[in-house]
Design a protein around this nucleic acid. Structure first.
Length: 194
DNA sequence: GGTAGGATGGGCT
DNA sequence: GCCCATCCTACCC
């Protein structure tokens, strides 16, 4: 069973959203027995970005994005799927990072059971909806503190050299050109252009 | 290899 | 009433 490093502290999240999105690459998302290396993220800085859910202010849904960093913003998309974001920026400033793809590293058999449509291991958590299915993350995880408890982000077991490529974000219409998507260079578990 | 179309429901104008 | 930070299947090279 692989071992991982310490949990990322809250201060790691209390920084500009794009910096957090970069910093999360190569870290390990853990939910109970399931774990995967984060290989693709997108920044949704709440201010001056109309693509961000927080752009139009605090609502019941976006409340957590304006709160303390290091919490989970989970939302329903297309009536069927959920996406996982991690809240960035200091308390009171909106901003979150969409986790778009994982390289599975633990609990892979459970993931396969939750992802019957995935024929190859690369497809298990390649995409924001697919990774929440694989990890068993649901709307009930809205607001969860990812610096403690069942859903956390950890340092990798061994430090590794990281090369990052930057592209526009996937699947959005407004602000479509902004370079706010970050991927581990050449990684085969990434969901889109590399 | 590629893509068109449908599923499906909350959020907001 | 329209819009999605998506995914899967069927079908076509």
């Amino acid at each position: 069973m692989p071992r991982f490093g310490p949990i990322l502290e809250r201060s790691c999240y209390a920084r500009p959203t794009a910096e957090v999105a970069r910093a999360l690459l190569g870290k390990v998302l853990v939910h109970g027995p399931a774990a995967g290396i984060i290989v693709e993220t997108e920044a949704y800085p709440g201010r001056d970005d109309l693509a961000s859910h927080s752009a139009r202010g605090v609502t019941a849904r976006t409340r957590v994005i304006f709160g303390a960093p290091g919490h989970a913003y989970v939302y329903l998309i297309y009536g069927m799927y959920t996406c996982l974001n991690l809240v960035a920026e200091p308390d009171g400033t909106p901003g979150c990072v969409l986790i778009r793809a994982l390289e599975p590293v633990a609990g892979v058999e459970d993931m396969r059971r939750r992802r019957p449509a995935a024929r190859r291991i690369e497809d298990i958590a390649r995409g924001p909806g697919r990774l929440t299915m694989a990890m068993g993350i649901a709307l009930a995880d809205y607001g969860a503190d990812v610096t403690r408890g069942r859903l956390v982000v950890r340092e990798p077991g061994l430090p590794q050299a990281i090369e990052i490529d930057v592209t526009p974000r996937i699947g959005i219409r407004v602000c479509a050109e902004r370079p706010l998507r970050f991927v581990l260079r050449g990684n085969r578990f990434v969901s889109g252009p590399r």
